[in-house]
Design a protein around this nucleic acid. Structure first.
Length: 413
RNA sequence: CGGAGCGUGGUGUAACGGCUAACAUUCCUGUUUUGGGAACAGGCGACUCCGGGUUCGAAUCCCGGCGCUCCGACCA
C-alpha cells in the first residue's frame, strides 16, 4: 500500500487522556481511535494486525478440530434465566435493552448459554461427540471502570471455543490439546517467552482453571512465576495445597504483574444440565454433556504485544502480526531517479505478494524515519541517491537495529 | 460503586476576575530543501464541555449535569 493513500496520520503526542502505553502508541501510530472510555475503533493498520492475530488463533483452533461459527451478540433472556445468570445482581456487567415489541434482550459478555442451547438441537447421541465449536465475536461488558487502553474495554473481540465431550477422560484429553494449542498460539504471536500457564481458581467442576498470563507491568493480575518449570500460580489461589499439588516451594516463586491473555476452564455439566444438553450413551442412557470453555481476546493480545514489543521510538511488531512485512522508504531526489527506482521495486514486491507499505509521501527524511519507527514494521528498506550509486538498498531490522546494504537485484522478491 | 484530579483551535500547553484568549505543532499557499520529526514567508482554525448563578466584567469564582484519567472495589 502507498502511504500517501493511507488516511490515518501519525501524531507526535498522544492525547492527554490516554495513559496506558499500548493505547498511546497505537493511537499515535494510527492503529486505533478512541470512541469513548473503553471503546476503540480499529483503523487500517490496526485491523491488519488484529486480523493476523485472529488468523493465527483460527489456524490453531482448526488444528485441534474446532469448527468455526458466528453466534449473534443478542441474547435471549430465557437461556440465561435457566442458569441463573440473567439477574443483574448475579452478573453486574450486562448491557441490556428493551425491544420495541416489549421484550428484553442482552448483549453477550460470553456465550456458554446460547451455544449450549443451540447444541441441544445437534447433539443426541454419543456418536455426535466429541465436538468443539468456536467463534470470533464482539463481547460487551459494562465495566464500571474501563482502563488500560485496549487491555480492558467495554467492547472487545474474543475468541471463545467450547468443547463438548461424553465423559471426563475425553474432556481432559481435549483440555490438554487445547492447552498445547494455546502455547503454540502465544509462541507464534511473539509473546510466548513472557507467557506462563498459570493455575487459577477452578470453580465447582475442577480444582484449577488455567490462565495464560503474560508478564507485564501493565497487567492487572499478580502471579507467582516458577521460572524453570515455566508455570505460575495466580495470587488468588496461592496456598500450601497448591504448592504441594504442583510440587514446588514458595521460595522458587517470583511475584510479577501480568496480563491475562487467555484462559481455559472446565465447565463440567453446569451448563448442559441447566439447559438440558444431554446425549444417549452406548447403553442408551441419557447423560449431560461435559463442557469446557477456552478464551483468548485478540484485541487484548494486540495491546499486550504493544506493551511488550515497543521502545522509546514506537512499536516493534513481531513478524507474525505486523501490519506489513516491509516498510519501503524513498528519500526522493530532485531528478526523480529515486522515485523511479522505488516505484519499480514496489511493483516488483506487489507482484511477489510481499506485504509492503511504501512511503511515497513528499515528507522529510526525519519524518519518514520517525513514522517508520513509530509504526514498527519489522523490516525497513530505504532507497536514496546514496544507495542507488551502488544499485543498492539499505535494510534495517526494527528490532535489532541491524543495518545492511543489499543490491537491488539480489533482493529476495 | 467509594476516593482524587482534570475538561481551552485537530493535538499538546499558556493566560492575576479586566485589552482582539497566547504559544508550539498539525493543516493550507508559495519558495527552498531531502540520511533522523528541515528553513523562510503568508494564511485557516476556539461561542474556553453543557446549563444555571455571582459580578460593571468569568476560561478563571459558585451550583448542577456530562465526559475523561488515576487509586481502590469489581472482573464466568
Amino acid at each position: 500500500m502507498r502511504q500517501s493513500k493511507l488516511f490515518t496520520k501519525t501524531r507526535r503526542e498522544a492525547p492527554k487522556d490516554e495513559v496506558a502505553k499500548n493505547a498511546q502508541l497505537l493511537i499515535r501510530a494510527g492503529f486505533i481511535s478512541k470512541e469513548i472510555a473503553g471503546v476503540y475503533s480499529f483503523l487500517p493498520l490496526g485491523l491488519r494486525t488484529l486480523n493476523k492475530i485472529v488468523n493465527i488463533i483460527r489456524e490453531e483452533m482448526n488444528n485441534i478440530g474446532g469448527q468455526e461459527v458466528q453466534l449473534t451478540a443478542f441474547q435471549d433472556k430465557k437461556n440465561w434465566e435457566a442458569t441463573g445468570r440473567w439477574d443483574d445482581k448475579e452478573i453486574g456487567i450486562w448491557f441490556k435493552t428493551k425491544l420495541n415489541n416489549g421484550g428484553e434482550i442482552g448483549l453477550a459478555f460470553t456465550h456458554e448459554e446460547p451455544l449450549t442451547a443451540l447444541m441441544r438441537d445437534q447433539v443426541r447421541s454419543f456418536r455426535d461427540l466429541p465436538v468443539s465449536v468456536y467463534q470470533f465475536q464482539t463481547k460487551f461488558r459494562n465495566e464500571e471502570r474501563a482502563k488500560s487502553g485496549i487491555l480492558r474495554g467495554r467492547e472487545f473481540l474474543m475468541k471463545d471455543l467450547y468443547s463438548f465431550n461424553p465423559d471426563e477422560k475425553a474432556h481432559q484429553d481435549f483440555y490438554e490439546k487445547a492447552k498445547e494449542a494455546y502455547r503454540r498460539i502465544f509462541d507464534r504471536l511473539g509473546i510466548g517467552g513472557d507467557t506462563y500457564v498459570t493455575f487459577a481458581s477452578g470453580g465447582s467442576f475442577s480444582k484449577y482453571s488455567h490462565e495464560f498470563q503474560t508478564v507485564s507491568e501493565a497487567g492487572e493480575d499478580t502471579i507467582f512465576v516458577h521460572e524453570s518449570k515455566k508455570i505460575a500460580v495466580n495470587k488468588e489461589v496461592l496456598n500450601d495445597e497448591v504448592l504441594k499439588d504442583l510440587g514446588i516451594t514458595r521460595s522458587d516463586l517470583a511475584e510479577k504483574k501480568a496480563i491475562e491473555v487467555g484462559n481455559i476452564f472446565s465447565l463440567g455439566t453446569k451448563f448442559s444440565a441447566a439447559l438440558g444438553l444431554n446425549f444417549k450413551d452406548a447403553e442408551g442412557k441419557s447423560k449431560p454433556v461435559i463442557m469446557g470453555s477456552y478464551g483468548i481476546g485478540p484485541s487484548r493480545v494486540m495491546g499486550t504485544i504493544a506493551e511488550i514489543w515497543s521502545d522509546d521510538k514506537g512499536l516493534v511488531w513481531p513478524e507474525s502480526v505486523a501490519p506489513f512485512a516491509v516498510h519501503l522508504i524513498a528519500l526522493f531526489d530532485a531528478e526523480g531517479n529515486v522515485k523511479k527506482a522505488t516505484d519499480e521495486l514496489y511493483e516488483r514486491m506487489i507482484k511477489s505478494n510481499v506485504e509492503v507499505l511504501y512511503d511515497d509521501r513528499d515528507a522529510t527524511v526525519g519524518e519518514k524515519f520517525s513514522d517508520s519507527d513509530l509504526i514498527g514494521i519489522p523490516i525497513r528498506i530505504v532507497i536514496s541517491v546514496k544507495t542507488l550509486k551502488d544499485n543498492s538498498v539499505e535494510t534495517k531490522d526494527r528490532k535489532t537495529g541491524k543495518i545492511e546494504m543489499e543490491k537491488i537485484q539480489n533482493l529476495r522478491f
